[in-house]
Design a protein around this nucleic acid. Sequence first.
DNA 1: CTCTATGTTTAATT
DNA 2: GAATTAAACATAGA
Length: 272
Amino acid sequence: MPELPEVEIARRNLTSWLRGGAITVARAPDRVVLRGGAPSAFARALVGRVVREVSRRGKWLRLELAEGGYLFSHLGMTGKWVLRGAEEPELDWERARLDVVIRGHASSARYVDPRRFGRLVVAEADIAEWRALGPDPLVDGIDAKQLAVALARRRGAVKDALLDQSVLAGIGNIHATEALWMARIDPRSRCDALTLGDIRAVARGLRKSIARTLDDEDGPEVWYLQEAGAPNPFPIYGHAGEPCPRCAVSLVRVVLGGRGTTFCPACQVRRA
DNA sequence: CTCTATGTTTAATT
DNA sequence: GAATTAAACATAGA
C-alpha cells in the first residue's frame, strides 16, 4: 500500500498493539512473503520473545526484540497490518500473524497482502536493505544541501532520483509527483541542471506532502487502507487530463522509470 | 479483454 | 563497466 506516511502510521499502530507484548503465536505460512525463509524459523525466532520497540526507516518497519534480534517488514505494494482479536478467523489474503499478550490481554496483529510484494525477514542484525537506506524525511529530516550533493552526481530525471531509496528513504511515486508539482519542477528535469533553489523547493514540497498525508490520519484514514472505490485524496497524482489546480492547463501523464508520472506542462518548468 | 496500480529486484540492452 | 530500460513478481479493480 504504502509510502512513508502510511508506513509511519503502521509503525504507530504496531507500537500500540505490540510494544511490551510477549509473542505467543508467530505464523507466516506464505513462502512468497518470506522469500525463501522457512515458516518454522519465523516461529522459532519470535515465539516467547518480547517486542521492545517498533521503528521505521523509509518504507521498512523493524520490530526489535528485547532478547535481541529483529523482525523486518516491508509492505510492498498492497501490504498492511491490522489488529484483530486472537480468536478471530483468518482474513482474506492474510499472510502472517503475531499474537501477543500484554498484562493478560491477548491480541493479534495480522499481515494482509494480496499481491505479496511485501516481505517479512527475521534477522539477528540490521539487514542490508535497511542499512542501504538514505536519510529518512521524518527521522533525520530532509537537508536541502545534502540532497543537492546527491543530485549533483546524477544525470537522469529528478523524479527517478527521488524514488531511489538511497537518496531519500520512503519517497514513492505519489509524493515524488506531488512534491515536484509543488516545487513547479518538471519531473523529467535532469538532476544536475537543478539549482539549489529548485532543490529547496522540492524539499519543501516533500515535507509538505508527507505532512499533509500524515495529518489525514485523523480524518478519512489512509487512502490505500480504505475499501476499493475510495476517492483519491491527492491533488495531482492520478489526475492526468484534469485541469492543473494552479493554472488550469490540462495535467499530462508520461512514463518515467516505468512509473506513471503526472505533471503540469505549463507551470512546472523543465531544467535541461 | 485491456490497462493500471502505492514497490523493488533482476535481466537485458545500450 | 556504467547507465538506462524492460521485465518480473502476483493480484485486484476500473
